[in-house]
Computed example of a mutant assay.
Amino acid sequence: MIYFDNSATTKAAPEVVDTYAKVSERFWGNPSSLHNVGEQAFNLLEQSRQQIADLVGAKLSEILFTSGGTEGDNWVIKGTAIAKREFGNHLITTEVEHPAVYNTMAQLETLGFDVTYLPVDENGRVSAEDLRAAIRPSTILVSTMAVNNEIGAIQPLDEIAAVMRDFPRIHWHIDAVQGIGKGLMDHIFNDRVDFVTFSGHKFHAPRGIGFMYKRQGRKIAPLMTGGGQERDLRSGTENLPAIVAMAKALRLLLDDEDEKVKRQREIRLAILHHVEKFPKVTIFSKESPLFAPHILCFAIAGVRGETIVHAFEQHEIYISTTSACSSKKHMESSTLKAMKIDDGIATSAIRISLDEHNTMAEAEKFNQVFDELYTQFEKLS
Rank of each mutant, 00 (worst) to 15 (best):
E257R: 06
D194A: 11
V369M: 04
Q47W: 11
D166M: 11
K337V: 06
S285F: 02
S235Q: 00
I308L: 13
I341G: 03
S327Y: 08
D342L: 07
G217S: 09
K182H: 10
R132G: 02
H98Y: 10
K337Y: 10
T282N: 09
T225F: 07
T110V: 06
N123P: 02
T307L: 14
L91H: 03
S32N: 12
H35F: 13
D18H: 10
A361T: 08
R265L: 14
G302S: 07
G38S: 05
L253Q: 02
R234P: 00
G210K: 05
R125H: 06
P289V: 04
H274Q: 08
H274G: 01
S138N: 13
E257P: 02
G79M: 04
K84G: 03
I350P: 00
V309F: 09
T110C: 07
I308V: 15
F377P: 02
D191T: 09
T110D: 09
E259F: 11
V281S: 02
A270Y: 00
S7K: 09
L44A: 05
P168V: 05
L55V: 10
G208R: 08
I92Q: 03
E62I: 07
P137A: 09
E39C: 06
Y102A: 12
A311P: 00
R218D: 09
Q368R: 10
D355A: 02
A161S: 14
V115T: 09
H201Y: 12
V37T: 10
L250Q: 08
V96I: 15
E378D: 11
P279W: 06
N190T: 06
E46Y: 15
E313P: 02
E356M: 10
H90G: 04
N149I: 09
F278H: 11
N367V: 00
D18N: 10
T282A: 09
A270W: 00
E109D: 06
D232G: 05
Q178N: 11
A346S: 12
I317C: 00
M212T: 07
T322W: 14
F211C: 05
H98L: 11
R265F: 11
Q216N: 10
D186K: 15
L354K: 01
I188G: 01
A12Q: 14
V16Q: 07
L55Q: 12
V163T: 05
D121Q: 07
T321L: 05
E122T: 08
V142D: 01
T80Q: 04
T110W: 10
T322L: 15
L223A: 01
V120A: 04
H357F: 14
M339W: 09
A13S: 12
F284K: 03
D194E: 10
V101M: 10
H357W: 14
S48P: 06
Q51W: 11
G72I: 07
E316S: 15
F291L: 05
A176M: 08
K182Y: 08
V196S: 01
L336C: 09
K286S: 01
S61K: 14
I170A: 04
Q155W: 06
P222I: 03
N30M: 05
E129D: 13
V275K: 00
T144I: 15
T359W: 04
